[in-house]
Design a protein around this nucleic acid. Sequence first.
DNA 1: ATAAAACCTCAACAATAGTTGAGGTCAATA
DNA 2: TATTGACCTCAACTATTGTTGAGGTTTTAT
Lengths: 156, 156
Amino acid sequence: MTIVKNSELRRELTVGEVAERSGVAVSTLHFYETKGLIRSNRTRGNQRRYPRSVLRRVAVIKVAQRTGIPLSEIQDALSVLPDDRPLTVEDWGRLSENWREQLNERITSLMALRDHLTSCIGCGCLSLRECPLRNPHDVLSMEGAGPRLMDEDSHP
Amino acid sequence: MTIVKNSELRRELTVGEVAERSGVAVSTLHFYETKGLIRSNRTRGNQRRYPRSVLRRVAVIKVAQRTGIPLSEIQDALSVLPDDRPLTVEDWGRLSENWREQLNERITSLMALRDHLTSCIGCGCLSLRECPLRNPHDVLSMEGAGPRLMDEDSHP
DNA sequence: ATAAAACCTCAACAATAGTTGAGGTCAATA
DNA sequence: TATTGACCTCAACTATTGTTGAGGTTTTAT
């Protein structure tokens, strides 16, 4: 237990403090600010000062990134929230419900891929008509314009 | 059923043909070649000609990409394989076993995240000591230097 | 009061995964 | 043979997610 000095109970945090406590680099916090993901107040000397709620905001950003969501979408989602107070249960619920949905889709897609990868060890990816990894109407078609059907004559 | 002309049974494919059949852009094939992922023979006029096996190679690259593996690693894996003949069952087995392992880890990680996201709707991410998304020794510590423990005093 | 540590902006750079365009050549068809 | 579509190289550009460094200012501690 460290003794907490009075000065450390102040309401606002410097970038360095936010960086240390959130685990992201100072440069990243600057970057997030340019992207509109976080916001800061400035001292008269133009230095950033953050409300403590920024820590939770950064944590949310990191969680969303881990689900594979790009910063632009995170920004969209966060933009409807206040950035001057901690999230409420309702705030968080709206965010996470949406993200959980996307995450679920990604997981489902990856699991399908894994299963096909597993079964394709058996087929050796040699059988055109049976291997789902080589069939445009199965997994590969799930993302963009995937590989097309290949000819049987490409076999040895 | 289209009638296949004799000239279409030739052994080598042009970039345009590979692009069309594999579903990737010509520029991407050029790019893959600079990265050592595929290789081409050249005509006397310096145009690329590919053995048909390149189609399977490109398909494998696309599958690996979907699992989240970067091109550099795909290149490493493919570099031990011949690029002048189709993959055998053994070739494919070696590749996919390794990639399936990585894919499994990603899936496991994302599922843990999803579960925490779900349970955190209930906790509203307000309870510092209970929410695993905010605890550095749980999920967040699984990838790099994640967010650190936050103060209780960041609550309203 | 002064020095050190932390902060500021802005531009450039890094890695990944490509795409686009300019300027010129090759090959297949009429 | 002439033309047209496909091809060639190379450089520059796109987007994402940041990091690094130069040159200068503010804050904090002694």
